[in-house]
Design a protein around this nucleic acid. Structure first.
Lengths: 250, 250
DNA sequence: CGAACTGTTGAATAAGGTCAAACCAGGTGG
DNA sequence: CCACCTGGTTTGACCTTATTCAACAGTTCG
């Protein structure tokens, strides 16, 4: 599997000035929060909307940094690769999340659209100028980076020390929490990724992921609506498993 | 194992204004780089020196953020814990590294001094004011956060997808690289942590770490001077193993 | 209806973990 | 000076968990 940028060809780009921010679905949770009205207006001034089709690459490692912006719709997977193709997904990005690293010259990993993705894209030179001129924006980015770092470290704990069952429970709770923040709680959790991608996020094989799904289902902790829709039936039980407080979780 | 802050009692604190920055050993690599002379002077104005004895806790999870500063001497381990005591070390901090998260209200993990540690400490309210007033400082922190995030994701790749042998090789190369940046390259690599702590960093058991040390030694890639001093004899070979380009690394 | 996916389940295997014993260096004190 | 202790480390034997390989089932889509 070669992964050069632009090689997965299905990229379909639309570039246009974005809608009014007030109508934006992720206005309250994205970088934009904590900006004053005039600041927000300046940010909108440099933004362009860009759409990626499912399966298309947003960026690849060693490319010059270019894609920096906010996910408005869809899901992205960010991942790292080893020489022989082993893959580790380092994060899924949902609406409201920030993509790319404005302080980096070149990308250190890969990003691919899992679904149709709509981005509110900030061209690098412009956003770097705004960062320099708008302390609020820089501060917000620093806060976001801190949260990302903490999440990454939480995931190091998962990958280094949790069992397969604990990993899957943690994953489902994370998705539920992210959905809650986006304001789409209540209903079943939508899984825009397949078993193999969950496996690459949890450091497991896809078969193990499947087996653990079955176990959680049989234990009554979750219901599997369709393969890509999960309902949490026992939040406390799932939480206990995720925290590692359950002994015979075999 | 209870881990409340201040419970590991051997903490011995000295608080005093730091020396001239020009004489500081880590002046060129710490946050301080990229500050103008007057900015540096302001930062020095709020700094105090603090010393931690080996084994003492710098901070614990859920504590209000307090310790924020630069490591001047010694080594710190930062880690996360599960309810049953399973531990994952999320990073070792060496001279020049930045400790703590100035944007966080409460700590999300633990930090403990492995050796005698000397810190150039910035009291939280003061550093937060300086961050607001000095864009250069904020920008530098953002860059550092980005590097930390990338390293954390690189470690997710290691924990999720690398074999025991690949993990140890990667670890040794990381230590060598960090020593190089600090300007203490050339000689053997100093390991301020024991096998059990290496294991908790690599997501392995201490026995597996020990076995992999022996294998790398027998393969002629490293020499073990004392248990805590390693010389890399074959940098290319070690790099190939770390990258996963070696097949029969069993 | 059949092809192509994606997901599930089963059996065999391997990598690493666990438990336990031996080892080794550095210190202590007779 | 040397026996003895002690903590960290190494090594061995066995066991467990998750992986691998393989077959099978369920959906979706032409």
């Amino acid at each position: 599997m070669k992964l050069v940028a632009g090689d997965s060809c299905a990229r379909h780009e639309t570039a246009a000035a974005p809608q009014e921010c007030a109508q934006c679905a992720v206005r309250e949770i994205a970088v934009c929060t904590a900006l004053s009205a005039p600041e927000l207006e300046r940010l909108r001034g440099i933004a362009v909307t860009k759409v990626y089709e499912p399966g298309s690459m947003l960026y690849a490692a060693d490319e010059p940094a270019a894609v920096v912006g906010t996910v408005v719709q869809g899901t992205i997977k960010c991942f790292k690769l080893l020489a022989d193709g082993r893959q580790q997904i380092v994060g899924f990005l949902f609406p409201g999340d920030f993509v790319g690293a404005p302080t980096q010259e070149t990308m250190r990993g890969f990003a691919e659209a899992l679904t149709r993705v709509e981005l509110c894209l900030f061209p690098l030179p412009s956003i770097q100028r705004l960062i320099r001129e708008m302390p609020n924006l820089q501060r917000r980015l620093l806060t976001l980076a801190g949260e990302d770092l903490n999440l990454a470290q939480e995931w190091m704990l998962l990958l280094g020390r949790k069992t397969a069952q604990e990993r899957l429970a943690t994953f489902l709770l994370l998705l539920a929490e992210k959905a809650r923040v986006r304001g789409v709680a209540g209903g079943p959790i939508d899984l825009p990724m397949n078993r193999s991608e969950i496996a690459d996020y949890l450091g497991l094989s896809l078969e193990t992921v499947s087996r653990q799904f079955t176990k959680l289902k049989n234990a009554g902790h979750i219901r599997i609506e369709h393969n890509n829709e999960i309902t949490i039936r026992n939040l406390d039980g799932l939480t206990e498993i995720a925290e590692g407080s359950v002994q015979g979780a075999a």
